Simulated scan of single mutants.
Amino acid sequence: MLTSKSRVQSPKSKVGKASLYCLLLVAYCLLAVGCRYDMQDQPRYKALKKSDFFSDGRAMRDLPEGTVSRGNLRENKAFYTGKKENAGTAAPAASTTDALGNTVVTSFPDAVEEFPVPVSKELIDRGEQRYRVFCIVCHGPVGSGDGMVVRRGYPKPSTYHDDRLRNAPVGHFYDVITNGWGKMNGYAAQIPPADRWAIVAYIRTLQISQNPNGNMTLPMTGADVGQSAANTTTQSTTQTMASPRTGNQGETR
């Protein structure tokens, strides 16, 4: 039977345990310091800094040739560029000069002629929304080239409703949105590819709405292009009539 006397620890035992705890604490601290040095304080370069290691002196390195980020393989050339698979092998684009001395392209041999995405009412609605954000300020509500900045003196863009652009393939409009044209900058950084095609679909709808007796068609899926064009005509006409506002000084805004 244990007695209270037998359960009392000797001073020597207490000192031994305290020493063990201290050693464990020191070992843990050393381990923690070692991990921090390896993982957080390892040598590294800051962006755009000089490097004495590489022969060209640049710390920032180019990606290895052929590197593709996840989800950006872009195998569908028509979708991402608006151009045919054999682009560059056809005859060069024909061009002429307009009355203002601007070079105007009249043929588009490399541009795709069909949409690489299904054209639906939802796509056109999305295109209309994006058009009002990025395009209407120059091209105007119905694409006549009479946007607000043009009324303020900015060079007028071509109307979508002349025969040249009515007959232009859809890939041409996509390419212009992507890379720019003339005084227009490219919008590749602001508008993703799917939205660019949505805008192109809406431009086609505008062209049909302003030329209802023509033979232009839009390969719609799940909706009627005639109804979409009719809605576009009504909305655009109303906005065109309502957009000019007269300020206090008689200035058109």
Rank of each mutant, 00 (worst) to 15 (best):
A27K: 01
T106H: 05
G171A: 02
G127S: 04
G57K: 04
Q40D: 14
R36K: 10
N248P: 14
A87G: 06
P92K: 02
P193Y: 04
D146K: 04
P11E: 10
K17N: 00
Q42M: 09
M220P: 06
D175G: 10
A168Y: 07
K83G: 07
Y37C: 02
V200Y: 01
L24C: 15
E65H: 11
Y28F: 13
S243G: 05
V117A: 03
V15H: 09
T106I: 12
T106M: 10
E122P: 11
C135Q: 08
I191A: 03
G82N: 04
G82W: 07
G101T: 08
C35D: 08
L2K: 10
N102W: 09
R70G: 00
L2V: 15
L218K: 01
T159M: 13
M1E: 13
E251C: 06
R126T: 13
Y160F: 15
V8D: 12
K49Y: 01
R44Q: 08
A198R: 01
V119N: 01
P64W: 05
V117E: 02
P192Q: 03
A78W: 00
R164P: 12
V176R: 04
F79C: 00
L2C: 06
L63W: 09
I124C: 09
R151Q: 12
F53G: 00
Y174I: 07
F134H: 15
M220L: 15
P244K: 04
A229W: 00
